[in-house]
Computed example of a mutant assay.
Amino acid sequence: IPKEGDTVSCVVDSTRRDGITKNHTSTHIINTSARSVLGSWVWQHSAFKEADHARLDITHHSALTDEDVLKIEQAANGIIESAIPVKIENFDRGTAEQKYGFRIYQGGVVPVKSVRIVSIGDLDIEACGGTHVANTSDVEQIKITRTKRIQDGVVRIEFVSGDGAKEFVKKKQVDSENKEKEEKLREQEKERRLEQRQLAKERIPVIAKSLLECKQGSVTVDDITMELAESGKANFCYSTSDNYDDVFHIGLGETLCKTDPKLVYCGLFEQGEKVRVIVYAGEDISKEKSAGEIVKSISQILGGAGGGSPKFAQGGGTDKSKKEDAIKNAKSMIIQ
């Protein structure tokens, strides 16, 4: 550890210095751009600059719209493209104030006799002690990454410049491409499911016929299980397959229960973030085993709610892990 009075050698981190330098000049560019877009009342409230990001807080009466942000960013990059020299001069305080006015104190009044003035043409003239590029073109590019209203009358603009802006644009493009691919895959999956469900709907008569041909025990047809009880007791048919939707379950349940008045049909399927339940009860069994009560019980297990009439009911919940528990509960209610 150096002692007081020792001479030490230091090296400037040129990469970090370059990033901060570009972000510092960018702060001035965004400040004047925001003023030109929003109005003359815009003033720098505070600012922060790092090598890879920066922010500028400005005085403005409301949150920025997407259109405001786009116009400010376009104005800022227009200044960069104009390749305006950035001039640095030193004046005594009185001379600077007489020549440029008090608007030079964007970051607050400087309590010194000599004032360092940074000028970007006649667009922005401020008292500033920070590092700056020699020409606005050296900034290369500015991208506003986020804006938010942080308090009454103050809006924060977060941004990147130079290589940071290029990386931001590249990442945004990659994210956009990935999002587009994911959306395309979702659409393809949606179309596949719709096609699959349409085919299943068309197969309702065939599936119903195959299930009703079962005379004893149990049988499974296309992920739909029929369980026959002893004579005089309720029969139970169910499915937890996500290949079927509400239209299919309503159609199949109604068909089966019309043919077998002692049958209870239960269909569980996932729809988005939820698990839906549809229950049909035949004419005879509905007097003893209410579809509404069965759905209410199942839905509670799934973390939701439901209900309906003795012959038809629907409901659901959000706990997808409890689908099998829900079916077991329905079965116990029906065969007891």
Rank of each mutant, 00 (worst) to 15 (best):
E180W: 09
A51R: 05
R16T: 09
D245S: 00
K209W: 13
T220N: 08
K166L: 15
G306R: 12
Q44C: 10
S241H: 03
K3M: 06
A96P: 01
K99Q: 03
P111I: 07
Q44R: 05
D325H: 11
S137Y: 05
R197Q: 13
P85A: 13
I30H: 04
A234C: 06
Q98K: 15
Q271I: 00
D138S: 13
G292H: 03
A47E: 04
S46H: 01
A234N: 00
L56P: 11
F269H: 14
F248D: 00
C214M: 00
G307H: 05
L211Y: 05
D52E: 14
L199S: 10
Q188V: 11
L70V: 09
K99H: 06
P205F: 01
D175I: 02
G316K: 11
G267Q: 02
A200W: 12
Q216K: 15
I88V: 12
D92R: 15
K148L: 07
E177W: 15
A83L: 06
K190W: 03
Q336S: 14
A47V: 01
G130Q: 09
F312C: 03
K296M: 05
E182A: 15
L268T: 04
Y238K: 01
V11M: 06
T136E: 05
L38H: 10
V154N: 06
G129T: 13
K143L: 13
G39K: 13
G272K: 05
Y100V: 09
Q271G: 00
I224H: 04
I88E: 10
Q188R: 11
E213G: 12
M333R: 14
P261A: 02
